[in-house]
Amino acid sequence: MSNTESNSVAGMSMGDGARPRNLAKGLRTREILQQVSLLLVWVIVVIVFGILRPDTFLTVGNFSAVFGTNATLAVLALALIVVLRAGDYDLSLAAVMTTCSVTLGALNVEHHVSLLWAIVVSLLMGVALGALNGFIVVVVGIDSFIATLGMGTVLGGVALWFSGQQQIVGVSDHLVNWVIVKQIFGIPISFYYAIAIGLIIFYIFRYTAIGRRLLFVGKNREVSRLSGIHVKRVRFGAFVVAGFIAAIAALLYTGSSGTADPTSGISYLLPAYAAAFLGATCIEVGGFNPIGTLIAVYFLVTGVSGLAIMGVQNYVQNIFYGAVLIVAVAGSQAFARSRSRVVSD
């Protein structure tokens, strides 16, 4: 970070800072284009698949499915950006979600605990696991990448153990009703949960002191510490909040089929990362942000859905998600470089 400063700025001031107006205007237009680029790409993808498969892709049913059935991924990606924004990684979130889901299923189905209490325990489980991650990373001081990679694997095992290594079928219909059956404007209600969480995070990131501290810490811990910010508290808090939101994702994950599956949840991790990094290329360019992440999630699942309708095999999903993750990161780096050129210009 500091290198960027010394490299790109060394010896070059902006003069009087008076860029010619049309240049500034050009930059402004470019910025706006960049901010909405992903939205444009999404529209193009919709148009292309629409032209290729108008009868199946451009149907209310398909859109309802695309928006309604992917809330789990959206909420998990939102959980992830809280930690990413604070400058840490969390590779355990999909496993946290799975563990919470299995906890919910086991309590409700096998131990006949009421749905409400099962949900409460499951959410607390998310908070506790987030706190455990936070403890290992912030207090013990292990690099977050390694710590959460380890935790993710441990929790993958725990989920299998809690569930007796099989799917727990028959979770209360109420949950299923409140996740996927009820619809507003033809789209399952879970979509609106994801949007609501996204908007809350947007507000917190943008308009609260906590949100600004989170960004400060993510951008530079030492500057934050010397500015009087409780860096450890902020990072710990980010892990806890992410655990809680992952537990909400677990409710949607369980509720969308009425089943707690101890294995398939893990596969949400990569698309969540792809969405978070792709999301950081738009809206608030260069920063992990909830609106960009939501756009990215629905861009990704539109792509996957379109490919499926085209008759492409399932494994293409993995190729698509993985490639998008790499392209998103490469793209944002290339953009950062081009911008620093504009800067030293």
Partner: peptide, 9 residues
């Protein structure tokens, strides 16, 4: 750059 300011903000 590393202690005083968030340079990309």
């Amino acid at each position: 750059g590393t202690q005083g300011l968030w340079v990309d903000m």
